[in-house]
Nucleic acid binder design. Structure first.
Lengths: 231, 231
DNA sequence: TGACTCATTATGTATAGACATATTACCATT
DNA sequence: AATGGTAATATGTCTATACATAATGAGTCA
């Protein structure tokens, strides 16, 4: 590598120094200008490298105070939350979708509370099953706010899953995610082919467009399912 | 806002256009140079704004091909993975730590496999309990590779938890995380004050320094525990 | 002692210009 | 029609320079 140093090289070299304790936790590291001189690059290049380390939580930066190695590396892990179809097909398995139920009915209190909806509004309620190689992968229990997505009223959701349909038909500006463990209800156990009370991995997602709630979905997976990531 | 446009303004304006379907999913958006002209900024500024949108999965970029609005927004959520102590204290609750067991013994096959360790190596095995307001919050089952962290042999871990100790004494370069649901074993149920077979939320973390495995930890939480984030 | 002012300083961001690199589109050849 | 080479092009990155902004810390005054 005879060429000049890229911001990646500089970032990796600084990460190495931190991992190797050349730069101790809590210690101030040299200023951008000094590092730029050392690496023979422009300050902007060092700045970009440092910004990436800061975003990863490896260093902390403050104007005037300088940059220091994070004392408690609040490791921030990124998880990709793909569409079920992509998740299944990425594993080289065959995806199949089945609609279990569709109704327009008043949403229960916990759903309304999670979305911040006042009053017993009627919403579109869908129950779906996603299969991988014909084996149950996820049961989906979804509520759609028809006031935010009126077009959903005309859609049967018999061939396309609500998540895929919404991606193309309902823009959103904010999303909340919650993951938890729970025991399978009778209905969930039946759909997934588990014993009632088996531990299931539950993901919930709520989305909004501006202030208006769009949808709430509860995704229930068999206990073999995992959420994983690396940093 | 009379000053010139910042990359934030430009980024937000472009995100707005995408959310409002001014720029349709899958469509190519104008080239950087054209956008720079429109916003009255330098191309580098538009570039930075677009890079952030790309990182967030909102647009996809390819050299020569241009930038297009992502068809399947592979939502990528970021979770902060704090130390237990910080997690508990951030909720305004009192943190307490208790060591349940300490032994140097051969690691079981599944731990060795997860870390990529060959042979029945003897490792430091710790079992700990973390409490919030005197209520069980997490049982920790940890294996430490003494070849990578020899100093751990001399530490009793009676007053400081292994996670905090390791943060200050064992640099790492890579970490893997896995989250899953499981049923509480007899030992876990006993420690957490749950019924055997109750659904528990399990996090596993494996860390390495270069090629050398450092530690494997299994963190078991009561079913009330959740992992949450927003985007 | 304490509160305030202000210069100093490291990072934050913008700019113009240049070159690098991946990919496409088109054209020529087989 | 299939293949292969090549020019065109949008993004990727670096540089040098400038000014902005947030903290710090020293000095001043009550």
């Amino acid at each position: 590598m005879a060429g000049r140093a890229s911001f990646r090289d500089i970032r990796d070299e600084m990460a190495r120094r931190i991992a190797a304790r050349v730069w101790q936790p809590g210690a101030i590291i040299p200023a951008e200008e000094e590092l730029a001189r050392e690496f023979g690059s422009a300050r902007a290049t060092v700045n970009r490298a440092l910004q990436e380390l800061a975003r990863a939580g490896i260093v902390e930066r403050k104007r005037k105070a300088g940059t220091r190695v994070a004392l408690h590396p609040v490791r921030e892990a990124r998880f990709v939350i793909p569409l079920v179809r992509q998740e299944i097909e990425a594993e080289g398995r065959a995806y199949r979708y089945r609609l279990l139920g569709r109704a327009i009915e008043p949403a229960p209190a916990d759903i309304r509370a999670a979305l911040g909806l006042a009053g017993a509004r009627r919403m579109l309620h869908l129950r779906c099953l996603h299969l991988a190689d014909e084996r149950p992968w996820q049961v989906e229990d979804r509520w759609i706010n028809l006031a935010a997505v009126p077009a959903a009223r005309a859609e049967t959701f018999e061939t396309i899953g609500p998540n895929e349909w919404l991606v193309h038909n309902a823009p959103i500006s904010r999303a909340d995610f919650v993951f938890r463990a729970a025991r399978a209800s009778a209905v969930e156990a039946d759909a997934l082919g588990l014993d009632v009370g088996e531990a299931v991995f539950v993901g919930e997602r709520m989305t909004w467009l501006g202030q208006e709630p769009v949808t709430h979905v509860r995704m229930v997976h068999p206990p073999t399912h995992t959420l994983r990531t690396s940093v």
